[in-house]
Design a binder for these strands. Structure first.
Lengths: 239, 239
DNA sequence: TCCTCTATGTTGACGCCGTGAACATCGGTG
DNA sequence: CACCGATGTTCACGGCGTCAACATAGAGGA
């Protein structure tokens, strides 16, 4: 971090989720932008949405805001730092999409819980399909100092599991606990169940985006998603 | 494609899988390399193995071989073309790793088939963990003309499901058919089963690499993999 | 009120990247 | 042997991330 990045907490939080034209350039050539950090993040988010993580180009974001490239360095340590901000935003959007899906289902008992789990998974995959660029950015490596190669050629991987929004994991955990309480999942199959569930959903999303499922229509993909989610629930339910 | 890329079929095939020092530079300054295309692919494979798809830098590969950067354009259309060759190679290695896993299991009947499916999945994930750079490259987008942005800003996604090695999919299909024949999977649950199986395995691999499972030890991850594979089989077996 | 100090921008430069154009060299075919 | 196409080379361009030096606006104290 550098300069005032500490002050804004490094989060994205107050970026207007979808403010149309990126606040398109400052009015009347003010020398100081006023909110350049968030403006750059917003521009970078749009780039990511259109072209994925590789499209998040520092100079392009600066151009969009109407500011010189190096101005970004007053607010971000590096290109990876900016990308990390977009990554955080993407993860938040993913969580929001899951929550939106879960809120629509209100049923009680085993069937209600089952439908809620399905809704969670559908929300996850819906976000991946509707916002592929952001989804890929949310799961891309190489934000901040995650990977790099030192001058002597050795590979460095700093950070470990850093930079992960744990909220989506918590949502899954809560719903799985509910599923056990309600008798949907056998208690002895509970430990580690979030892994199977998450892997299945995430894998399905990846196959939709980068795999051989990328040509399916909306309707076909609906069947696929239901089938996959049904299978993972069946696998967890089996005694 | 350009020049003689047609002649070698665009495949990698005859690249020595792991020839230590990349054939380290031509001897005695011969003007013509003799096998530059494969030498560049080999160098690019090493780059990918060390740093993933982003490390596959055309100029770096040329440097490794001891040749000028533009020489690569006699054998590849573009950077994406070279990356595509590495991608193909990575997919072949993945298939090889799955086959190696499957060959170790010889049992007959339901239990044998079950163990064979587990071995296939373990091979998939073992490759992802042992060769993360190659694995990521095998599944990276942006080889050849897969994605791009036109001058007017619109996003173009050419190719569709192109560039996919279908062999791994076939192996899965065969084993699933075997599982039905042997009574492991209910026939009515067979259609679409490869999707669930693949999604689960691929998702687990992704969570190991880019997700929150990247800190697990070898032993821990073994349990995780077994658990996940067990779950997906249970899900398919349930009537 | 004015002066100064610091946060925030700008310009210029560097080395790396992918890529095209023009030129050089080798090796096989008439 | 003379030639020609395949295969390399050098040079050049614009774009990228990033650093150093300089410019400016706006806030807080004299």
């Amino acid at each position: 971090m550098r300069a005032n990045t500490e002050a804004t907490g490094g989060g994205v939080g107050d970026v207007p989720a979808a403010s149309g034209r990126a606040a398109g350039g400052r009015d009347k050539g003010r020398y100081h932008h006023g909110d350049l950090r968030n403006a750059l993040i917003q521009a970078a988010i749009e780039l990511a949405g259109e072209g994925g993580p590789d499209a998040v180009v520092l100079r392009a974001a600066a151009r969009k805001v109407g500011v010189s490239a190096t101005a970004a360095y007053r607010h971000f340590d590096s290109h990876g730092d900016l990308l990390g901000a977009v990554k955080d935003y993407g993860q938040q959007r993913l969580v929001a999409c899951m929550e939106a899906g879960g809120r629509e289902v209100h049923g009680e008992g085993p069937e209600g819980t089952r439908r809620r789990m399905m809704a969670l998974g559908r929300g996850y995959i819906r976000f991946a399909r509707q916002e592929p660029g952001l989804f890929r950015t949310a799961f891309c490596r190489k934000a901040l100092g995650e990977v790099g190669i030192t001058e002597d050629g050795s590979v460095i991987e700093a950070g470990g599991a850093s930079g992960w929004d744990t909220r989506s994991f918590e949502m899954l955990t809560e719903t799985l606990d509910e599923a056990v309480a309600v008798g949907l999942i056998a208690p002895d199959r509970r430990p580690g169940a979030e892994l199977s569930a998450w892997a299945m959903v995430h894998g399905t999303a990846m196959l939709f985006l980068d795999g051989p499922l990328d040509t399916l229509t909306e309707e076909e993909s609906g069947y696929v998603v239901d089938r996959v989610l049904h299978d993972v629930l069946a696998g967890l339910a089996a005694s």
